[in-house]
């Protein structure tokens, strides 16, 4: 079973059209089904200029990825959009390290049974199967909003805290701040449509899971 699947081109292409790209690809979970060929196909088909690419194991390991970000600083600087091929955790790690850069993930996370568990600690992914990070500045509302809102922040968000627990940050406030920083606040005008929970192994029978 796949850990992630590559998103449909129709979702990604409008976001990156004629932009210079830098790509992060994680092969850490290759042995437990990262769709290597599909991802390569997708990358090859891109018409956009690719200014650089970093392929590494364990994009979920933040300190480790930080070193790559430093090593590829020049290329990353030249790129207009950073593309990530990894699970939701890896995508969140890259977004967190490049807070002022537009980072898009090209994968939907279905399952986290890779080696990811070895190192991931700062970020969470609920393996929802329809990754939403491209509309939220790389912060996950599914795993981190107390009400799984796709159109947040709700009416209880105050002073950056979640209404449900004052010790918890409101992820939608963080999303707002990140998008403001990126000059992408218009993204919040988009209506988040009902989620397809059925693509998530967490909520579906094995035979319903995608191959």
């Amino acid at each position: 079973m796949l850990a992630v699947q590559v998103k449909a081109e129709a979702e990604i292409l409008p976001l990156i059209s004629s932009k210079r790209l830098f790509i992060f690809e994680c092969l850490g979970c290759r042995d437990v089904h990262y769709p290597v060929e599909k991802a390569a196909e997708f990358m090859d088909s891109l018409k956009e200029e690719i200014v650089g690419k970093a392929t590494l194991d364990y994009l979920c390991h933040r300190e480790f990825v930080h070193e790559y970000v430093k090593a590829y600083a020049g290329e990353i600087e030249r790129a207009q959009v950073i593309l990530v091929f990894s699970c939701g955790v890896g995508a969140q790690v890259v977004s967190s390290l490049l807070e002022d850069r537009i980072v898009y993930t090209c994968c939907d996370t279905l399952y986290l049974n890779g080696f990811q568990g070895l190192t991931a600690k700062e970020f969470n992914c609920d393996q929802c199967g329809e990754c939403y990070l491209n509309y939220t500045g790389g912060l996950c509302p599914v795993a981190l909003c107390s009400k799984n809102l796709l159109n947040g922040p709700c009416g209880g968000s105050q002073a950056g805290k979640c209404e449900v627990d004052p010790d918890m940050p409101c992820v939608w406030q963080q999303i707002f701040d990140r998008l403001a920083k990126l000059g992408q606040l218009h993204t919040l005008e988009r209506l988040g449509t009902p989620k397809n929970w059925n693509v998530s192994p967490a909520s579906s029978a094995p035979e319903k899971r995608l191959p």
């Binding site: 922040p153 009416g155 105050q158 950056g160 406030q173 005008e189 209506l191």
Partner: peptide
């Protein structure tokens, strides 16, 4: 419903716009 007093204030009109939409 809409709450004009929640944070971030700048988003509150947007949220109303989404409900209208």
């Amino acid at each position: 419903a809409e709450n004009p007093f929640a944070d971030p204030f700048e988003f509150r009109v947007t949220r109303l716009a989404k409900k209208v939409e």
